[in-house]
Amino acid sequence: MTFPDILAYVSSLGVFFPLIIAIIRRENFTLELKLMFVYIIVSTLTEIIATFWARYLHSPNHFMLNIFSVVECLLLVLMYREVFINKLVKRITLITISVFTFFAIFNFTETSNFVKFNSLINSIACIIIIICVFIYFFQLLQTLTVQKLSVTPMFWISVACLLYFSGTLFLFLYGETVLFHKSPFFKELWVIYFILSFIFRIFLAIGLWFSKTPLQLKSSSKSAQS
């Protein structure tokens, strides 16, 4: 077994970290974290099905990656829409994701776009999520409502998204040229994807771990301290 193969296994198994944490902490989830929970379930199922599809049916599973990219973008953007305060930004987010979904469905009507790895759709999905992360960071800087970033779930999730989607955007931009080239150098590039994927999942797990307790969220009595 080669190093990239080991990394591929570790990366695939990494999907279970956030899933386990999400199951443990699910009682504490606010709406945006519930959407993240749904995303984690979808990504775990996709990972399992795609692995079995490739190993046992010996057939390309690129169409799954294409569908998953759209669903992933939809869920993550909806999650960010929940944390955005500005109503205009919320509206633009909704319009963007609706347009993207319709565009992706329209694009998939052509068989070659659906069956092969769709570089365009994957890249657009990455760009939309990166923009959402930057809007969230900007909102944090404007409001300064978070006392400690290191214990804020959305901060960890955003760091995970920014690292993962910026890295994969570079890979997806060149699509099949880079990812499915026969040369050993281009095959090594998959290593980057596996590492990014693993880091992404670990950071998601950390973020979900810091979800607040129900007691803190439901406390109604106001108190102040001089």
């Binding site: 930057f134 960071f137 944090l140 800087l141 300064l144 970033l149 760091v159 920014l162 690292l163 910026s166 890295g167 955007l169 570079f170 060149y174 880079v178 590039l189 980057i192």
Partner: peptide, 27 residues
């Protein structure tokens, strides 16, 4: 590709570090 890849990795990391520094300074 190596240059582009390095930039793609360094940019988000720099953005995150910069964000954290600016955030705590403003706070």
């Amino acid at each position: 590709i190596v240059i582009l890849g390095t930039i793609a990795m360094l940019l988000p990391v720099s953005a995150i570090i910069l964000f954290v520094i600016v955030y705590y300074r403003r706070q």
